[in-house]
Design a protein around this nucleic acid. Structure first.
Lengths: 257, 257
DNA sequence: GTTAAGTGGTAAAGTTTATATACCTGCTAT
DNA sequence: ATAGCAGGTATATAAACTTTACCACTTAAC
């Protein structure tokens, strides 16, 4: 006999939710771009196969989330989302769409490699001092088993490397990207720790990044950044897989089989 | 202005569909096993947070698909799905749940390696003749650009290797597994060709499998099988990714941006 | 065997959600 | 100034879902 508890409440998506999700996905995927004018409500409702009132409800939700802008008598427009960097609306959007995660990692892999290479080429004495200080923070946090401090130092390191690249566009873009990270939306430090519980490998990779920049070796720097992001991606994949398996195992345990 | 055509009709999942999908997933994941007795309809409806009539509709759908067995006055039971090998109901179930796909490949990778190793150790003269004939078919199909014949010969090869293993349990199990393949549910030959358009690599791998068996080298045989399955998995991953990207690109094209 | 408890089977009424239609108001171009 | 099209609003209708009640069958305890 199977315990009833394993049948958790289903979340039945309403028509409105479905439409909202679809439009959001189209924005995330880049199908609907900044400032684009959407077809009329009547046309869209017809295309989606839903009634106009329901489509309007969906548009209202999207407007409340800052993703579209509805103008009476004129039309509906996709909001300016990537104007300066990533807007808060875009950040929240990414957090609701996990599929975009690996796209994000792919993007970050290239950006980190680029930033680290530039840093190795351009880091000033002040940049190098800052990196050295962060290196000590990282090691102290690791020795002290202080996960919070470790996470914070990790964040500061990536930030310092980007600053050392001395490319203002890159700095602005990455600032908003790191905001995603800091919110724990993507880069989940606890998840990483659960895989590589010593944290030693992460520390070694961070140190390699710092040393490659300090030694002004752009090739080595780029490689260090790529290796680090590859490891992060692989760890997260494994962590998610592990979580999925444990979830199933718990459910099997409940069944008493 | 964005064309209305890109907003394709949404498929709003009903409560019933959602429940059916959830239960199917639990069966695929092995949380609900053969012959297990489900809680009463009242309990399940309560646990899922849906009304009993809707839960019953879901159970009726599941029963029509041969996944559960409802007995008046007694209770509802998960059907015997893996009794002899894989039942038709189980095959259909896998086809509806793409996530199970990589589990399937993982399983097949091990089984193929096992079967090929045994074949290298046990193949009789008749088995070897059969394999040689298939080798000629494969090469002829490749030279003749005959995708249909190629696909058929591919299927026959895998079948012949399993037969040459002379393990009846394995033969029976793989027979039902290959049924999935033949239905094109998992192993999509066209998809593979779109990645490896010459088909040369697939042909080489098939020949390597045949030769390793003919030379009675179990280590080489196992490796050949693993290499082949790794390549198939990687190709399918890339093919799916490609399809996803092309889909997006088509939609962007429609927007005229 | 009889019976009580628990199971699936069925039907009706009520509520929520979604659709269809009509009409109003505001913007923009001619 | 006005015609056409956009969003804004309201109401009637239909579909989906829930709630409640009661019936029929199976099992197991008595």
């Amino acid at each position: 006999m199977i315990a009833a508890e394993i049948f958790e409440p289903i979340d039945h998506e309403s028509v409105v939710d479905t439409v909202v999700g679809k439009v959001e996905t189209m924005i995330v995927d880049g199908v609907l771009k900044d400032g684009a004018r959407l077809p009329s409500e009547r046309e869209m409702a017809d295309a989606f196969g839903v009634s106009r009132p329901k489509l309007r409800e969906a548009l209202q939700t999207l407007e409340a989330r800052g993703l579209v802008h509805v103008r009476h008598g004129d039309g509906t427009y996709i909001a300016k989302l990537t104007g300066r960097a990533m807007s808060p609306a875009m950040l929240a959007l990414y957090s609701r769409h996990g599929e975009a995660f690996y796209d994000y990692l792919e993007y970050r892999r290239e950006q980190e490699a680029f930033a680290t290479r530039l840093a190795a080429q351009r880091a000033t004495a002040a940049d190098k001092e800052r990196l050295s200080a962060i290196r000590e923070e990282l090691e102290a946090a690791w020795l002290g088993q202080d996960a919070e401090a470790e996470s914070e130092a990790d964040f500061r390191l990536h930030h310092a490397v980007v600053d050392a690249s001395h490319n203002t566009t890159l700095i602005h873009m990455m600032a908003s990207v790191y905001d995603l990270t800091r919110r724990g939306i993507f880069y989940n430090h606890d998840l990483l720790r659960s895989i590589d519980d010593s944290g030693r490998k992460l520390l070694d990779q961070h140190i390699e990044i710092i040393e490659s920049v300090l030694s002004a070796d752009p090739v080595r720097a780029e490689e260090a950044a790529r290796d680090h992001m590859d490891y992060v991606e692989e760890s997260i994949r494994r962590g998610r897989e592990l979580q999925r398996r444990e979830q199933r195992a718990r459910m099997r345990f409940k069944t008493g089989v």
